[in-house]
Design a binder for these strands. Structure first.
Lengths: 139, 139
DNA sequence: CATTGACCTTCCAGTTAATGGAAGCCTTAA
DNA sequence: TTAAGGCTTCCATTAACTGGAAGGTCAATG
């Protein structure tokens, strides 16, 4: 199977599939003409990778998940640990974004958004420390 | 003022400050010895940039916000528009992460996480389309 | 048989926003 | 004088692709 078919079946662009080969996530055979020759097994692996990436796992996570997937002696605890760590990363990211969102939303609502230059958003970004005039800035 | 002092005052690492100069966000003077020589105004700008970046604005947003900040003829609507677009980006990102979180959390709870190889997480990642055998794959 | 168009190949560059490190000045104090 | 610390530039690296150029392959058509 050529890369175009695999792209369609796996949902990954050809560029990405080539990249995944380059970093060793798949090892397709080669036809006599130099074209990559994928087996169904490769398609399956690539779809697996696509789903893992869609869940936000890093490439390194994917590499490890794939290794576990192919190891029938694995302990599910190993998989779960990777997933839990990722879940924590996601939670942290969401918290960070929620914090940004709160501040930004507040500022946006406070801004008239008209022709006048007065802007609480810029005022906040420019905000000097409230006690700035108490700080020795001559140093 | 040397870069080290500016770093301390602005909260940005020296490396980042040099980078911001490289991409034209600040233009410090130079002393006779070749050292960058920052004015209070530069420190203020850098702190502004640091706060904007902390709110997740891109560097390009920062460039535009800074230009508006320095233009006393600006309309607050221009600032608000940038902020609103960013808010939307944040909301999209949060939604995406929340979706990942939901799926992943579900899978993690379903996984025993013991010594056995059975794992719903891997099963899901490997999941072929439920109706795969009904799909014409010969096309 | 030649050519066209759709594939495929490799290789190089660019993306975001820094960060790490090497090699080498400048300054100051012991 | 020499050592420490701060400063300089330049180059490489990060994550995970993506875009594009130059060129080989293949199937069908004129």
């Amino acid at each position: 199977m050529n890369i175009g078919d695999v792209a369609e079946k796996s949902g990954l662009p050809p560029k990405t599939i080539r990249y995944y080969e380059e970093i060793g996530l798949v090892r397709p055979l080669r036809s006599a003409n130099g074209y990559r020759n994928f087996l169904e097994r490769d398609v399956h692996k690539l779809a697996f990778l696509g789903r893992a990436r869609a869940l936000g796992f890093t490439i390194e996570d994917c590499r490890n998940l794939m290794a576990l997937y192919e190891d029938d002696q694995r302990a599910s605890s190993e998989v779960k640990e990777i997933a839990e760590q990722h879940l924590e990363r996601i939670d942290n990211k969401i918290a960070e974004l929620a914090q940004m969102r709160a501040t930004l939303s507040h500022l946006v609502h406070a801004c008239a958004g008209d022709h006048r230059p007065d802007c609480p958003i810029l005022a906040d970004l420019a905000a000097t420390c409230p006690d700035e005039d108490l700080i020795d800035t001559t140093a």
